[in-house]
């Protein structure tokens, strides 16, 4: 049996609770927020690692983003991944999901493909959830999205996943290779293995590929490869709440809330 090859797509995002909006300008103060690995991508990595625990094989992390992603992503190496590839080039900047999925697909092809390509269900910033199906389309493989559990039948080369849908779940089966997207909090990501930390920090764990390395079609990447454009920004009107503070003892507060409820319902 050939070894199991897995690739996990991971994105680095600003910590949601540290993002502040400048209400004067209506812009995000991104700089005020520290970076973290997109939370469901940790669940995706955990799902892949537990398969690796069982079947062995090779597990690589791939990410498209600027150089500052690298130190954040090394945590994934310390958790158990074998290698990290960062797709980084000024020409990748401004990518919408079409250009992002094209670029990731090129990177995965250059890695030699994989039996399982993992993603998180969605990112905590862009939050489109469009990368997993888009990636599957570029790679021309089936997909299992929104999974809470996955099992393999390695002899028959099929993957069987439990997918969350409205009001329930379904169990789907597809042949390998396939793209998988994993629900947030569907498992408990393991801690970094401190014995791996030095190893994880070594230069040879990382490859950085630019557009040329990927033989990427310049028409398909970054801003140029993105059909969508932001034509304007506006401040959301919806923040016109009263923000009136009520005061008193718990029972006085309760009386005031009760009045509000009875008036409004």
């Amino acid at each position: 049996m050939p070894e199991l090859r897995q690739v996990v797509c991971m994105k680095v995002v600003p910590k949601p609770e540290e993002i502040r909006v400048d209400y004067e300008t209506g812009l995000l103060k991104r700089a005020s927020a520290r970076s973290e690995i997109n939370p469901p991508d940790m669940n995706a990595l955990e799902m892949a690692l537990s398969l690796k625990d069982f079947y062995g094989g090779r597990l690589e992390i791939i990410s498209m983003g600027p150089p500052y992603f690298e130190p954040v992503l090394r945590a994934g190496l310390a958790m158990g991944a074998d290698h990290l590839t960062l797709l980084s080039d000024a020409a990748f900047a401004g990518a919408d999901t079409l250009a992002t999925t094209y670029t990731l697909a090129q990177g995965i092809r250059k890695l030699g493909g994989a039996d399982l390509i993992f993603c998180g269900e969605e990112s905590s910033d862009g939050a489109t959830g469009q990368v997993p199906p888009g990636l599957a389309e570029w790679l021309e493989v089936p997909q299992l999205t929104l999974l809470t559990a996955l099992e393999l039948d390695i002899e028959c080369r099929v993957a069987r996943g439990r997918r969350e849908i409205k009001g329930g779940y379904e169990v789907l089966e597809v042949p390998l290779p396939c793209v998988v997207s994993v629900k947030t909090a569907s498992n408990e990501p393991r801690f970094m293995d401190y014995r791996r930390q030095y190893w994880a920090s070594e230069a040879e764990r990382l490859k950085v590929w630019n557009a040329e390395d990927l033989s990427a079609d310049p028409d398909c990447i970054g801003l140029t490869g993105s059909p969508t454009t932001v034509s304007g920004l506006a401040e959301a009107a919806s923040r016109e709440r009263r923000r009136q503070f009520l005061t008193g003892t718990p029972s006085e507060l309760a009386t005031q809330i009760a009045e509000l409820l009875q008036k409004s319902l």
């Binding site: 999901t97 469009q130 997993p132 199906p133 888009g134 570029w138 997918r163 993105s226 059909p227 969508t228």
Partner: peptide, 20 residues
């Protein structure tokens, strides 16, 4: 869940943009 999956695939197949 199904609408998003379908939209994500179609947009790539048609090489068009998709706003989520």
């Amino acid at each position: 869940p199904n609408g998003r999956d379908l939209a994500g695939r179609l947009a790539v197949r048609l090489r068009t943009g998709l706003n989520a």
